[in-house]
């Protein structure tokens, strides 16, 4: 095995460049090094000005998403040896404005996420003394997959609908809405409905499926969206036939 590999890293320094340029760095090729370790090596040893986000280094925080050789990836969970002999092209996540180097502006996602109210909503909260809201393993199974989301936004980066229609609420936000809609303890489905069934919600999705392919956590946002389409369609038919019945 060669002992070095080339990282081609997108640099964007707004005070220097009007658009990103690629810069190459030689980094050690070690067996357990992820792309993120390569970048850390660059920052520590070669060029301290390189900017990128990371935190947990173990695929949990969702902050290290980047485009590696054209694919959206968690850079802490993508290994250099898998790209040997290189070079490895590292760019910021697509479909987001770039602030600097590999750092993207995530404001859009941060404003959209609370719109689907991704928390447990109850009509009446039972007092704490009464204990937890109990749930069977089967009820947990209904939504558990969607609860694995780490908000890494790789799905947004992979989605061509999001790049064409930036108002699209997007895969993760819809999957997270479903995470609560399908939770037996939750009673907020009706409150989430307007946003989800709007043109910027589920109906913008035409099932490209790349979000689910890109997701590092097996969330299957594409599946969540299709499932809600069926729910929304059944609901509107019910409303049409029985306009007075609620919930």
């Amino acid at each position: 095995m060669a002992d070095e590999i080339t990282l081609e890293v997108a640099r964007y320094r707004p005070e220097l460049e009007s658009e990103p340029v690629m810069e190459s760095f030689q980094v050690p090729l070690r067996e357990h090094w992820a792309v993120l370790d390569g970048l850390t090596y660059v920052k520590d040893q070669l060029d301290g000005t390189l900017s990128f986000r990371w935190s947990c280094r173990m695929g949990i925080c969702g902050s290290c998403g980047m485009t590696v050789n054209g694919e959206p990836q968690l850079s802490c969970a993508t290994f250099l040896t898998d790209y040997a002999p290189g070079p490895v092209r590292v760019e910021p996540l697509r479909n987001f404005p770039v602030i600097r180097d590999l750092v993207i502006d995530i404001d859009d996602f941060m404003t959209k996420l609370p719109e689907v109210k991704p928390w447990i909503i109850r009509d009446v909260h039972s007092p704490v003394e009464e204990g937890e809201y109990l749930q069977t393993p089967q009820e947990l199974d209904e939504y558990q997959q969607f609860s694995m989301c780490i908000n890494c936004m790789l799905c947004y980066s992979a989605c061509p609908v999001y790049s064409l229609e930036p108002d699209f609420i997007g895969p993760a936000a819809i999957a997270l809405a479903q995470r609560y809609n399908l939770d037996s303890r939750d009673e907020g489905a009706e409150e989430r409905r307007a946003v989800l069934s709007s043109p910027e919600g589920i109906w913008a999705c035409t099932f490209v499926g790349e979000c689910s392919a890109a997701c590092p956590k097996g969330v299957d946002p594409a599946g969540a969206i299709q499932r809600y389409k069926l729910t929304a369609a059944t609901r509107s038919i019910k409303d049409l036939l029985m306009p007075r019945s609620r919930r």
Partner: peptide, 27 residues
């Protein structure tokens, strides 16, 4: 804050099989 927005390539839909399929299905 001045950010950089990557322009959409004219033939972006040829980049992946799934994108091509998506455009054909829209069509």
């Amino acid at each position: 804050m001045s950010t950089y927005q990557r322009p959409l390539a004219l033939f972006w839909w040829l980049e992946r099989r799934s994108y091509l399929l998506f455009v054909l299905r829209e069509l």
